[in-house]
């Protein structure tokens, strides 16, 4: 679908479809077709959302829950970007560095990060450290892989052009290889961010008394299904805003992507 084919009718359908879904959902609970304890009506969820925003959850303000989750994911994600980009670029540029990381990375890569979470809790306790480390670990692998792929995607002609114009190897790296790797690296950041958020929720389900994952897990334990949905909506909002933010950064700083 090319963007210019998206006329008024396209957007009408695009907006009508979720509206229809919400109406269907509302009808299901209104006519008693599903147990509201399992699937509360949209209105009840909206009311619960308002209550949580005003009064907080489990005696803790909503901003604290969100702030704790954001802090965990942001700290882990930023560290993953720094470490992952560095490893990925170095693997892409230097065959010895690539060789050093090859087998360890390939061994752990197919293992779902959550498989390690019990181990992390054993090693680092149930607190912040194990949560942040598991998010860092899963995001870093993705960032490193994409940064390396970005270097590999840099056409040899461009590196040769730089060198033949008098650039040193160092200048060619900073001024040609690095920008050429940027588009694929940005893709990696977006995928890594989505992964980081899902690992965050899983890590928070396992323990603690703060964070949106805790809200979801605690509410489900006490059958407060409304509040389960509230937690889901809030984490979804964070994910959406963060992804839009990265997409905006991408358009701003990787303006040439797909156009050259």
């Amino acid at each position: 679908m090319r963007p210019r084919d998206r006329d008024a009718a396209y957007w009408l359908v695009a907006l009508a479809s979720p509206a229809a879904l919400v109406l269907l959902w509302d009808a299901l609970s209104r006519f008693g077709l599903v147990d509201p304890l399992l699937l509360p009506p949209p209105g009840a969820i909206a009311a619960a959302l308002r209550d949580v925003i005003v009064d907080g959850y489990a005696g803790v303000g909503v901003l604290t829950h969100m702030g704790v989750s954001l802090y965990r994911v942001a700290a882990a994600f930023l560290a993953a970007v720094v470490v992952g980009v560095t490893i990925g670029l170095m693997r892409g540029v230097h065959s010895k560095v690539d060789a050093a990381f090859l087998i360890p990375f390939e061994v752990v890569r197919p293992i779902p990060p959550l498989a390690f979470i019990s181990l992390f809790i054993l090693w680092f306790g149930i607190g912040e450290v194990s949560k942040i480390l598991i998010i860092f670990y899963s995001a870093m692998l993705i960032v490193a892989l994409n940064a390396q792929a970005g270097v590999a995607a840099c056409p040899q002609d461009k590196i040769r052009a730089a060198r033949s114009l008098g650039a040193s190897r160092w200048q060619a790296f900073w001024r040609v290889i690095l920008p050429a790797a940027l588009p694929q690296t940005m893709v990696g950041l977006r995928v890594a961010l989505a992964t980081a958020l899902s690992i965050l929720v899983a890590a928070e389900l396992l323990g603690g008394d703060r964070g949106l994952g805790f809200v979801i897990s605690d509410a489900s334990t006490f059958f407060k299904t409304n509040d389960v949905f509230v937690g889901i909506i809030l984490i979804g909002a964070i994910g959406f805003l963060a992804d839009r933010g990265l997409a905006w950064l991408g358009r701003r700083y990787v303006h040439w992507e797909g156009r050259s």
Partner: peptide, 11 residues
């Protein structure tokens, strides 16, 4: 060198 594809820096 002038390259066939230009090899310009797209950024």
């Amino acid at each position: 060198v002038v390259f066939q594809g230009g090899a310009l820096f797209d950024w």
